[in-house]
């Protein structure tokens, strides 16, 4: 067994600190996910509408958020909101704002894709059966959309959880930052600690995201 410097995890409160960091990351991603899903569904429905103005606006929003690296968005919200408007947002709140904006854009696109992927004959058949527009959506289109959507949105959630490691750059101490702190504090006494600590962080991310991945693939099999 190579020396992984795992002993640093049992020093003082290090393990608790790592778990606290993991919670900080999960808190940001969970709040953002809870906000992104309804907002994203709304955005997706707007994106498939035929009105040109709405389409241009939503498309611009989506492309803008998607092209911008998340790190740039974080810096814009955290620092530039203060520079330009004097609004002093905390690191955590800035992170939630950015991840919600990003999650909404991505979710909106997934919803748009799921709705447009429903074949035209589904609409026509239900209309032919005598259902009105609302009934068509409620009984035919939405159930099929949700099935296509669920696995994709679970994947989006895992992506959001993993991307939270960026928030350390705006001063939010989350699991990756705590890991760096532990490694650095023990640089001389346990030079190999980087392996053990990052391995632990990897396991933490894995144990958080893996159940979601399983859920996604189950749903895919069941409904795909």
């Amino acid at each position: 067994m190579p020396d992984l410097g795992l002993e640093v995890l049992f020093k003082g409160k290090n393990m608790l600190r790592l778990l606290g960091g993991l919670w900080a990351a999960l808190e940001i991603s969970l709040i953002s996910v809870l906000l992104s899903i309804p907002l994203g569904i709304l955005l997706g429905i707007i994106m498939v509408r035929k009105e040109l103005v709405l389409r241009v606006i939503t498309r611009t929003y989506f492309e803008f958020i998607r092209i911008m690296p998340q790190l740039v968005l974080l810096f814009i919200v955290f620092f530039d909101s203060t520079k330009l408007f004097g609004i002093n947002l905390s690191g955590e709140l800035s992170s939630v704002i950015v991840f919600t904006l990003w999650g909404t854009a991505e979710m909106g696109d997934l919803v748009r894709g799921a709705i447009t992927s429903i074949p035209k004959h589904q609409y026509e058949s239900s209309l032919a059966l005598g259902l009105n527009n609302a009934q068509t959506y409620f009984y035919v289109i939405i159930p099929q959309t949700v099935r296509r959507l669920l696995p994709l949105s679970v994947n989006l959630i895992t992506r959001m959880i993993k991307t939270t490691s960026l928030v350390l750059l705006i001063g939010v101490v989350e699991v990756t930052k705590v890991a760096q702190q532990i490694i650095e504090a023990n640089r001389t006494s346990s030079p190999n600690a980087a392996f053990g600590v990052y391995l632990t962080v990897f396991m933490m991310y894995f144990l958080t995201c893996w159940p979601l991945s399983i859920l996604a693939s189950r749903l895919e099999k069941k409904w795909g």
């Binding site: 814009i76 919200v77 909101s81 704002i97 950015v98």
Partner: peptide, 8 residues
């Protein structure tokens, strides 16, 4: 920055 502002 106007966009993030709306959400905040």
């Amino acid at each position: 920055s106007a966009e993030p502002d709306a959400a905040g």
